[in-house]
Design a protein around this nucleic acid. Structure first.
Lengths: 187, 187, 187, 187
DNA sequence: CATGAATGAGAGTTCATTCAT
DNA sequence: TATGAATGAACTCTCATTCAT
């Protein structure tokens, strides 16, 4: 029952569609047309709808996949011996990712408002995972203790969004991060 | 034929349309329909198109107006005797505004990517105005000198966006700002 | 397109669409496409949807109109001095009408199951109107008293449907009616 | 891969498909999807199309089977010693059947208009068989002699349709039949 | 011989935009 | 000048039918 054990390349198509969808929706937002996804994926429109019976489901699937990857990474870092760098590193990585890909993906995500169902779980899981990293970093004295998860999460999303939408060169992005990181560091 | 002929004549249709459009696009994003703008403004759809021949032009006009207001405020503060508070206050105000209204406005704005033409001037002007405030605050020793306009602008947009999209209570928003402000303050 | 002066004949368009729709749905059932209605009416598809925001609403409107006409006729006959002929005449007229036009119209109607909203009122009103004619005919001794409204209504619909779907020549139709009428007459 | 391989092998796919199709089309009309037939039959969609290369062919096959059964019954009764009850009994049985199953089957059937090919033969055969029953009943004095096959057939179809579409309780259905039967009986 | 993934043609519906009043 | 009816293009989604496995 996993995904589609049926045909060999059916899974291939599914994967390709997801990948293309991430790119298309990343660029044009959820307003981008399913038809464009189909075209770029090199399949008929009906094939997209066979794998993802609804546009919303497709969008959700993209989000779920994305957040699953992020969470996985976060959970890996949760056991690090060096909680400070683990936290800041993860923060930085997410922001770096956002630069190219996230775009609208997060436009939905954060609030989780529009997309219900499974997709809403993604942000929630991520939040939780970030919470663990944050707590450990605070316990280790690497992050100021008066910083709550709410605002850290907001900053994470905000900086990612900013970076995703504004063309920011490497150095500027690094300095933006540095500012936030400094703000998060105990004096 | 309009619903409120009184206000219609009083302020002029153009102004009314702009006002309503800001609200409508602020809520539903650029996806919101032009017809809804017309309806809420109490004018016929054709009247909207007479004043703004294209939806894009209408959106741009909304943005321009919005940025003009922001710039005006920024320029007012540029002559303040207290450059530090002026800068931080402006930053905070923009973010506070964003909470309720900006929403999509920024979704277009920031990069200026999608909207060409005049609208692109809005962000640019704002950027410039912020630049002035920043430089003066730096000169006064209230902001670290290695913070460039690029990253400050990015943070401004980013935090605004985060606040606009994430339901963040008062305290969390204040703390998020505090973190960023701390990061901007020289050690 | 061809014949679109505007304004005043918006009502004209609405009427034409309804008329064409009755014919199209009468032929092909509710499965017939809205696009065909538009084409035959000589208007763009969007015009149809402007007047009838949903296909269902369009279908309902057709039904409502049709039933309104029938009811009007029935009510006119309700005051007849000759209740027997009034009842049988109305029965016969409905069946005659059905021959050419009803077709699917009744396919929805009768049960009223599928079409909700206003349309459901149509059949109900008609049923009521027929009930009045029936009672008066029974009081006058022209119709057997053990015939309930349920079965009379069923026969009315049934014979109409039969006539609508089967190519039946004049004489055969007359004889089918005669059989039913004889069955309804007290011995 | 099928859901019930047992039954599948036992009866042969063709038979299973036909059976399921009768039920599915009986419920949802010809609008019901071929895929639903496949699903309920526990076979792949392609298997359905292997046996019945076209949806229309499948529908026709269902009709043919249905009419074959009816005709068989009619022919059995044709030799009855009691032509009156034989005729009326058959009439009643068909109507009773229609209540649950026919639905759309008749929507095509009757006129034979829509479905060409073999299916058209079904109604024709049935008509003929009914003709035999009718003539014998007339010869036996149980049915008025001025009732032609055309109108009897029409009434048969009509009453069946009415009963199939209108929710009619047992008693009302019985009385509707009684009325028609009375109408068919010589005075 | 069976399977189910892939497909294209259409259906309903929406929306920015134009045109006659 | 303001209006709103009309329009076609585009989008989401469905379904009968085909093809590779």
């Amino acid at each position: 029952m996993a995904t589609q054990p049926t045909r060999a390349d059916a899974r291939g198509n599914r994967a390709r569609i997801l990948e293309v969808a991430e790119e298309v929706f990343g660029r044009g937002g959820s307003a981008a047309s399913t038809e464009e996804v189909a075209r770029l994926a090199g399949v008929g429109i009906a094939t997209v709808f066979r794998h993802f019976p609804t546009k919303q489901i497709l969008v959700e699937a993209v989000l779920v996949r994305h957040f699953d990857r992020l969470c996985e990474r976060a959970r890996g870092l949760a056991e690090s011996d060096d909680p400070g760098p683990a936290f800041f590193g993860f923060f930085g990585q997410i922001v770096a990712d956002a630069a190219g890909k996230l775009a609208i993906i997060e436009a939905f995500t954060d609030a989780g408002g529009d997309v219900g169902g499974k997709a809403a779980q993604g942000p929630r899981d991520l939040r939780e995972a970030v919470g663990v990293l944050l707590r450990r970093a605070q316990d280790a004295g690497a992050v100021r203790t008066d910083a709550g998860l709410d605002e850290v999460h907001a900053l994470l999303v905000g900086v990612s969004r900013a970076v995703a939408h504004i063309r920011l060169d490497e150095r500027a992005r690094a300095r933006a991060l540095e500012i936030v990181f400094d703000g998060l560091t105990p004096r």
